[in-house]
């Protein structure tokens, strides 16, 4: 069985990103091919902000997700509309809005909700963390 994770809870106001991280580690540990992709929506897109600097004695959630993506080749998608309105911007959006900087962390990519629809139709189950 292959899962898609839909994460909607803010990394600062909920434990959605933390719980999903524990789930994905357990799933990949048991079945390496069990996760098709992870889609971050609503305030969860803040996970992809490369400028956030958590205190050193706390978990760096962004880095933890980047390690998952790198080690297991799991795509991490951020909803482009939700991300851009919250200041999480890649290079091309940065040019489009004539900004001098971009803030999207490595291993995350901006995609439309159509990508989530595609994931829904190509995996057995979508699990929401909110």
């Amino acid at each position: 069985m292959q899962y898609t994770l839909l994460i909607t809870g803010s990394p600062y106001q909920s434990k959605a990103c933390h719980t999903a991280l524990r789930f994905i580690r357990a799933a990949l540990n048991k079945h390496p091919d069990s996760i098709k992709g992870v889609f971050f929506y609503e305030d969860a897109v803040l996970i992809g902000n490369q400028t956030a600097q958590p205190p050193r004695d706390e978990i760096n959630l962004t880095k933890a997700w980047q390690e998952i993506a790198e080690q297991h080749s799991i795509p991490l998608y951020l909803c482009i509309a939700a991300a851009v309105r919250r200041g999480v911007i890649n290079e091309s959006e940065s040019r489009r809005y004539e900004l001098e900087q971009h803030t999207l962390a490595e291993h995350f990519q901006l995609e439309g909700l159509g990508t989530l629809v595609d994931l829904m139709n190509t995996t057995n189950k979508v699990i929401q963390f909110r």
Binding site: Y41, A82, L113, V117
Partner: peptide, 13 residues
């Protein structure tokens, strides 16, 4: 924004 983003997802679906 939860309501708005929920409706957005419904419209995209």
């Amino acid at each position: 924004l939860a309501c708005k983003e929920g409706l957005d997802l419904a419209l995209v679906l």
